[in-house]
């Protein structure tokens, strides 16, 4: 189970660590970080309290597309490693022309991606008070 998980997640892990890095660098160069240092806060406090939240925002917004990507990726990975998962079922149902199963799994995937993206959007509003979903609608 280790190798398939690794194959599936590695690309996303790499991308997320890059996002974290750029996000943090971006936040740390902002004016309010200078204010935080001018208050006498220690570098560790400045990073943890004043930078981390803002630096992770791009990561959080990437989690939505990332889960979608991982779900589709699992189709290929399960086939490659012969893991009897949902992805393999889906592929088999397609090649066996089992329309009912194919449709069912498609709907399941749709619901999953939809829900996860919504959860990410909601998490985003918790992190960033400037975003008001009700107002934008």
């Amino acid at each position: 189970m280790l190798l398939p998980g690794f194959c599936l997640g590695l690309v996303y892990a790499a991308y997320i660590s890059r996002l974290t890095r750029t996000g943090m660098l971006e936040v740390l160069s902002q004016d309010h970080i200078r204010t935080a240092y001018a208050k006498g806060l220690a570098p560790r406090t400045v990073v943890m309290r004043h930078a981390l939240k803002g630096g992770l925002l791009p990561v959080v917004s990437y989690l939505g597309p990332a889960t979608a990507g991982i779900l589709t990726g699992s189709l290929v990975i399960e086939r490659l490693f012969f893991i009897p998962g949902l992805g393999l079922h889906f592929v088999n149902s397609a090649s066996n022309r089992d329309y009912t199963l194919a449709m069912g799994v498609t709907i399941l995937y749709t619901v999953l991606v939809y829900t996860l993206n919504t959860v990410v959007d909601l998490a985003y509003t918790l992190l960033d008070p400037r975003i008001d979903l009700a107002e934008e609608a």
């Binding site: 902002q30 004016d31 309010h32 200078r34 204010t35 935080a36 240092y37 001018a38 208050k39 006498g40 806060l41 220690a42 570098p43 309290r49 004043h50 939240k53 803002g54 992190l127 960033d128 008070p129 400037r130």
Partner: peptide
């Protein structure tokens, strides 16, 4: 040392900045 200076910054010697829009943390 930075440690010594941190005791003075914001305490005996404070600084305020030009742009109050960007000089406050938007997320806190």
């Amino acid at each position: 040392s930075d440690q010594d200076l941190r005791r003075i910054r914001g305490n005996r010697l404070a600084m305020i900045f030009q742009d109050p829009m960007t000089s406050l943390n938007p997320l806190l």
